[in-house]
Simulated scan of single mutants.
Amino acid sequence: MKYIIFDIDGTLTDTTEVDDRCFTRALEDVFGFKGFETNYGHYVNTTDSGIIDQLFQEQHQRTYTDAERESFISHFCNLLKAAYAQEKHCMKEIPKAAQIFNTLCGQEGISIGLATGGWRESALFKLRCAGINLEGCVATSFAQDAKARRDIIGNTIRQMNEQHNIEVPKNDIVYVGDGRWDYEATKQLGIRFIGINNKKLAEISHIVKLDDYDEIHQHLWNQAVPA
């Protein structure tokens, strides 16, 4: 058995721009934050939960409560829905992502999971809008499950091992992502990484980067584990 685990924004769905815009607006509307860093790759944990936790620690010397989290998610999702209603094109698949995802889900000897730094509710909404069907997906993890991306990915791996009643070797696990933080998380976990070619990964030259999802099959199992 081999595991392939996907990120969502920028990996399966072309939603990074609208997600960042609505996330920033929700931080201002719900928590009253002003003048904060909106290049979210600069945060210690580039996840929705990690970013909000860091802002709360910096500005209020505490983390957020469950009630504050739920209020934020509700408003954030409403902003995403309003953006989609106004411009359907803002939430589409990365070209060929749905087809590749469905093909891999039906392939014998392969198990598919999701691990994203976004909230469950917002992630599932964006996937639906982009036409990504999760029927064949074995396990999912979201920002509610952990603040660090490595822990979110690790949670999906644990679920998949429990589902299959095995412990798959790290060399047989691939994470597909689009950010430097994704690559760093795979290094910490000792699993394989495949990147979606974009400017966020431009400075990392020694990894596999996909220009087209049709290329993924040739790269799945013929690469070294991140050093």
Rank of each mutant, 00 (worst) to 15 (best):
M1C: 03
E167G: 02
I191D: 07
N222S: 15
D214N: 05
E121S: 04
D145K: 02
G136S: 09
F56D: 11
G136T: 05
N102M: 00
D14Y: 05
C129P: 04
N197S: 14
Q223C: 08
E58A: 15
E121L: 11
D48G: 01
G113V: 04
A82S: 14
F33E: 04
K126A: 03
T65N: 04
N197A: 15
Y3V: 01
D20T: 09
N165I: 05
M160P: 11
G41D: 11
Q54C: 04
H206A: 12
I194V: 14
Q163T: 10
A139V: 07
G106P: 01
A26K: 07
T103N: 06
R120A: 05
D20R: 15
K170Q: 13
A67D: 14
M160T: 11
F142M: 06
E121W: 07
A146Q: 09
S74Y: 13
G177K: 14
V44A: 12
K2Y: 09
H60I: 05
Q159V: 00
G131I: 13
H219T: 00
P95Y: 02
T156R: 05
I8S: 05
F31W: 02
V30Y: 06
H219W: 11
V225A: 01
N222M: 07
R149V: 03
T13P: 06
E87S: 12
H89W: 01
K92M: 10
D66W: 00
T13M: 02
V30I: 15
W221E: 04
G50N: 11
I73A: 08
T13D: 10
S205A: 13
I194L: 04
I207N: 06
E68L: 04
L201I: 12
A67K: 06
N78H: 13
A123Q: 00
Q223F: 03
L27W: 06
K187F: 01
L134S: 07
